[in-house]
Amino acid sequence: MNIVLTGSISNVGKPLAQELVKKGHSVTVITSKAERIEAIESLGATAAVGSMFDADFLAATFTGADIVYLMETLDAAGDFFDKDVDFIGAISQIGENYKQAVLRAGVYQIVHLSSIGAHKKHGYGILEFHYNVETILGQLPRDVSIKFIRPVGFFTNLFGLIRTIKTKGAIISNYGGYKKEPWVAPADIAAVIAEEMENPFAGRTIRYVASDEVSPNEITHALGKAIGKPDLQWQVVPDEQLLNNWLSIGFNSQIAHGFVELQASQGSGVLYEDYYRHEPTLGKVKLDAFAKQFAAAYNAE
């Protein structure tokens, strides 16, 4: 099949492209940076350089595809320290561009990488943009089949803790403790997407993806052990303190408020209500395996 992937060779995109090429599919990877062409071609895929904000480019690239994989990230909208960026609005525009490109290109099979929390507009902070894009894509004609993939929090997001651990000597959040929550590895997401691309498409479907279920304290123990800091602590602070910390270092207000609300929903458990109504089989990558990756990144900085 001819498959077009958005998102370049990201944590999910790279293993997904590798798997699809291995299975004999013709794969085109969209990237915004020409310097990634060589890396994409080394995977056996074709690179298409352009922007997700360019609907004409997207439509031209999607034309002739049997399946298009759509994804969007906050990074595509701008820098977290740029106080003027409307991240929610910018990503909604990407969703609109996707919708128009799919219509113009005549694509009838879509896999969309969404997120846990996309089932509801409010209550999960910055995840609102996933709800918005799912809603926009849902406006496509009913003969366009869409598989919405909803992963939980990425293990790789924990790399963002490295700076705080090194400067503060602890993990700092507005929730913590012994309550388990689901996490996912990008490799397991890629495996699910590759599987879904080879399964029949019909209507609109939703599939959650997770790799392991662990508590904040278990994460702290595993990461601390891996980096040689067995006494590493996960410190819980009030929402307002965390928000003020992030604003004081220059975070965009929408980003700061959005992540505080998101993490509060993790702590209360409300983020996972729909997930547990459609609980998936867990993937292969567990916390201990990720902790080794974390240690490598920690020691490299």
Score class of each variant (00 low, 15 high):
1 M>N: 10
1 M>V: 11
2 N>M: 13
3 I>V: 14
10 S>M: 05
12 V>Q: 12
13 G>H: 10
14 K>M: 10
15 P>S: 05
28 T>E: 04
31 T>M: 01
32 S>P: 03
37 I>C: 04
38 E>G: 10
40 I>N: 10
43 L>C: 05
46 T>D: 08
48 A>H: 08
51 S>N: 02
51 S>T: 00
56 D>R: 05
56 D>H: 06
57 F>A: 00
58 L>E: 02
58 L>F: 01
59 A>E: 09
65 A>D: 14
66 D>V: 09
66 D>R: 10
67 I>H: 11
71 M>A: 13
76 A>T: 07
86 D>I: 10
88 I>P: 04
88 I>H: 13
90 A>F: 00
90 A>P: 04
91 I>H: 11
92 S>D: 10
98 Y>P: 08
100 Q>V: 10
100 Q>R: 15
101 A>W: 03
104 R>V: 00
111 V>N: 12
113 L>K: 06
126 I>K: 05
128 E>Q: 15
135 T>Y: 04
144 V>Q: 10
145 S>A: 15
150 R>C: 05
151 P>G: 04
151 P>I: 00
152 V>N: 00
154 F>N: 08
154 F>G: 09
154 F>A: 08
167 T>D: 11
167 T>M: 09
170 A>D: 13
170 A>Y: 14
172 I>M: 13
174 N>W: 05
177 G>L: 01
179 K>H: 08
180 K>V: 06
181 E>H: 15
182 P>E: 02
182 P>Y: 03
188 D>Y: 06
194 A>V: 01
195 E>H: 09
204 R>S: 02
205 T>G: 00
206 I>H: 15
206 I>M: 08
209 V>M: 09
209 V>L: 07
210 A>V: 05
212 D>C: 04
213 E>Y: 14
215 S>K: 03
216 P>Y: 05
220 T>C: 13
230 P>Y: 08
235 Q>M: 14
236 V>S: 12
237 V>Y: 14
237 V>H: 07
240 E>Q: 15
241 Q>P: 06
243 L>K: 14
244 N>M: 15
246 W>D: 09
252 N>T: 06
253 S>M: 05
254 Q>H: 07
256 A>Q: 00
261 E>I: 01
261 E>V: 11
268 S>I: 04
273 E>G: 04
280 P>H: 09
280 P>D: 01
282 L>R: 13
285 V>H: 11
288 D>P: 07
294 F>C: 00
